[in-house]
């Protein structure tokens, strides 16, 4: 599936391994949260990049101690109407200080990209979105009323600087 990272099309070299048993592969892998917590030491001992995929009801705070060892966190959107992933992303970026790649996967559509970006996502796996369309989607607004994970100064503050 096409991958957009930092606003540009990128090659996706990552594999998602549902069981957490990756075998020999040079690629980076992501595993479910439970698998990560269970096989943490084995997984961290691998020589390839490691990430975790969070489902909507996963608590990102359970990764608090391991964030600097993860190169990728995927947040799954089984349906785009399920908005829990936005809170997960904000928690990771703003509360827990995660700095690595944060990728939206699953039902990721053009009209949710800006909210996702504001919530802290910097990468999107999406069937439809073309690069031009992503840029359009991310540029639809230039001012925002509330602070979020994208670092924009919000309007309440901008009015007084």
């Amino acid at each position: 599936m096409p991958l957009i990272r930092n606003g540009e099309e990128a090659v996706n070299t990552w594999l998602h391994v549902e069981t957490g048993e990756a075998g020999e592969t040079p690629n980076g892998i992501t595993v479910p949260l439970e698998a990560f917590l269970e096989k943490r030491d084995t997984l961290l001992a691998r020589n390839t990049p490691l990430g975790v995929r969070l489902e909507p009801d996963d608590d990102p705070c359970r990764l608090a101690g391991d964030l600097d060892r993860l190169s990728l966190i995927e947040i799954a959107f089984p349906r785009y109407t399920d908005g829990r992933g936005y809170s997960t992303a904000q928690l990771l970026r703003r509360r827990l200080g995660y700095r690595g790649e944060l990728r939206a996967v699953g039902h990721v559509l053009r009209d949710q990209l800006l909210y996702m970006h504001r919530s802290g996502f910097d990468a999107f796996e999406t069937e439809r979105a073309q690069i031009a369309c992503v840029q359009d989607a991310l540029g639809e607004f230039s001012s925002f009323y509330q602070p979020a994970a994208d670092g924009h100064r919000h309007v309440f503050a901008r009015r007084h600087t």
Partner: peptide, 13 residues
């Protein structure tokens, strides 16, 4: 103003 286009709370239950 705060609630307008709040990115975290646009797809609530």
């Amino acid at each position: 103003q705060w609630s307008t286009f709040h990115p975290e709370f646009a797809y609530l239950p």
